[in-house]
Design a protein around this nucleic acid. Structure first.
Lengths: 362, 362
DNA sequence: TCTTAGCACTCTCGGCGTGAGAGTGCTAAC
DNA sequence: GTTAGCACTCTCACGCCGAGAGTGCTAAGA
């Protein structure tokens, strides 16, 4: 473990470097942070810290900068997070509070706010819809050749999609098909309803129907495809890409290019944002993706009905204002969770009333 | 009008500059393009062209580069577009042909391909849904307190959305409401159905219903909101942002920053992509947006059922491979138009998917 | 034994001058 | 009207130099 004084020095180096982006020397440390000892002593401590791997020297006779390990120690042991400034709190709160019900718009605003306030890149992973357990699949005829497929879960979530019917499909067929899928799939978590399972079902179904009406197969196929896609793909919102160009560590265009390329690779981003609930911080080399090995990714999950469904993230240089970013993400995640719960609560209220009313039909 | 020789010189300068990105001098022109005259003559012609505004000199004793006007003349009069190389054709065709029915995925692939093949930034404006004439609005009861609003146009296009019903709403109410909206709106182009018109309708409706059932107003309000949003907002897909970093004219980080900032401003992008049908080219200062005053934007529209509904665009430096980009966009637009027509013609495909998550308590 | 002052040493960075290279404009001859 | 020749200009890469910042080491002090 580090001696108290070493910790103080390390913290001072990290703080100084985060705010100035310049390698920090013993003299400046001596002047600006009153550590109670001379620059020479600080110098010795810094030499020790370097040997222990917490600091690095870009070149001899330059100051030191924190290593990934140094940042890690700082984040885990030294950093103290203050609550977000009131001004920023209000800025953030305004969005979820403004009653925007379109998730799409809401999340892109959130992304924009995050990048504005943090001055780094923001990433927002939309709420995944595949939680919950399938309750019913319905096929509702709408017009002559049009039906709508609707999917209910135990949480009342609904995905739906319009289907154009092949000729000669009759209402009974639709009903049969829906009953069949419901019977076979009800009670299963949505995430279990994968292509594999559906393949089996589809084969079975064809078996049944081949004799009767071949055209129905086409419809079933469309349904299977839809189900297999797990509802709507989860979108990722990015914002503030231009911010990294302001960071001195990204004057190297090649680095910027790699990062921009990453931001267009949805698959990689999904991987990057696959995080456990709460706040996580991965620093530099701790990241798996090569493109962000010189960056830090801070994430925070937000919830719907108490269950984590999406991720907010900030991507910036390892020289990042950790304390601020973490408070920011925590706060925003709370706002979002609350916003989603509000929506959900309002509906709940409405439905609650409906139920009582329904008991004694008017 | 320019003499034939001047035109040849101008063309040679543009071609040379496009491929090398270096100011071109009379001597290199003399060596690489055989214009049949000496470098001295070329020099004189270039001096003339500069005076006429077609060429510019970064500084005395450097070669010349084309001005915006020079590029304009080149595009309008000198450039000859070859058909797209077979290899690229195949690459582009594979996507719309691969039977992807999700517009979302299709268009993001298109965007990716465009930027890959062109090496510039690609922009894709999704198909606007507000063409066509409203035919019917239906409210289909689905479960006890859930209904689905479905909107049909003369082209068979459909938007739909799940609505959670207030209590005490009965099937007749739904029918009545739908009939009312249909009666008042049928035959109108979707783009005319704006908030203003709907406000009138809503007021009228409240008048009618107040006496009977206040709660119905809430439902009507939801409907009006939905209609006023003109269906789903049209998304813009971007790709290849990292490509501009490869362009020598974008070594200046400030320029890059402005461009990246622009790409996150959806409103501005809508404006940028508001184009007339067919191929358009705006060069440098011809652009209204300051952020792209040093860029060229080439656009091409794609169609559904013969009517332009969306835009493909390439954004790059004014020193752009115009001929290639134009062929590329034309070809891709054709592919897309065809893909969309196929979908609509076969009528076997899913047209639209609803994005909704209505909720209920467990 | 720990801390501190002093000092020589190292390394980067910006400014400056220089020369090569590329290109021009002008003039005079064809 | 075209071309060769030539003097001139401007940029850019290179190398040099000195200032500045910071280090490591040593020796003296607490």
């Amino acid at each position: 473990m580090l001696s108290e004084r070493k910790q103080k020095v390390l913290e001072a180096v990290v703080r100084e470097y985060i705010s100035t982006a310049e390698p920090v020397g013993s003299r400046t440390l001596f002047r600006r942070h009153n550590l109670g000892v001379s620059s020479a002593t600080i110098r010795n401590e810094m030499a020790d810290l370097e040997e222990m791997g917490y600091l690095e020297q870009p070149h001899t006779s330059a100051g030191r900068i924190p290593s990934d390990l140094g940042y890690r120690f700082y984040v885990d042991n030294l950093m103290q997070t203050d609550p977000l400034p009131k001004g920023e709190q209000e800025l953030l709160r305004q969005v979820p509070a403004s009653g925007i019900t379109e998730t799409d718009i809401l999340l892109s605003q959130v992304s924009r706010l995050l990048s504005q306030v943090s001055n780094y890149i923001s990433l927002v992973l939309g709420p995944r819809a595949d939680r919950g357990v399938l309750r019913t699949l319905k096929l509702v005829p709408i017009e002559e050749h049009v039906a709508m497929a609707v999917l209910f879960t135990d949480r009342g979530k609904v995905e739906s999609r319009v289907l154009v019917l092949p000729p000669q499909v009759e209402p009974e067929d639709l009903e049969g098909l829906a009953r069949y899928f419901t019977r076979r799939l009800a009670g299963r978590p949505l995430e279990e309803i994968t292509g594999e399972l559906l393949g089996v079902l589809y084969a079975e179904l064809l078996e049944d129907y081949r004799a009767k009406r071949a055209r129905l197969g086409e419809l079933a196929q469309a349904l299977v495809n839809w189900l297999a896609s797990g509802g709507r793909p989860v979108r990722i919102y990015t914002g503030g890409t231009q911010n990294i160009l302001r960071q001195p560590e990204f004057q190297d265009l090649e680095k910027v290019r790699r990062l921009l390329a990453l931001l267009e690779e949805e698959e990689l981003l999904y991987k990057l944002l696959e995080r456990e609930p709460g706040v996580t911080v991965t620093i530099g080399q701790e990241n798996e993706l090569p493109a962000v090995r010189e960056c830090t990714v801070v994430t925070s999950t937000y919830c719907m009905d108490g269950e984590p469904v999406g991720v907010l993230a900030i991507l910036g240089p390892t020289r990042m204002d950790y304390a601020h970013v973490i408070s920011l993400l925590e706060y925003m995640a709370d706002c979002l969770s609350e916003a989603f719960s509000n929506i959900s609560a309002r509906h709940a209220m409405v439905i609650q009333k409906t139920k009582t009313a329904a008991k004694k039909p008017v």
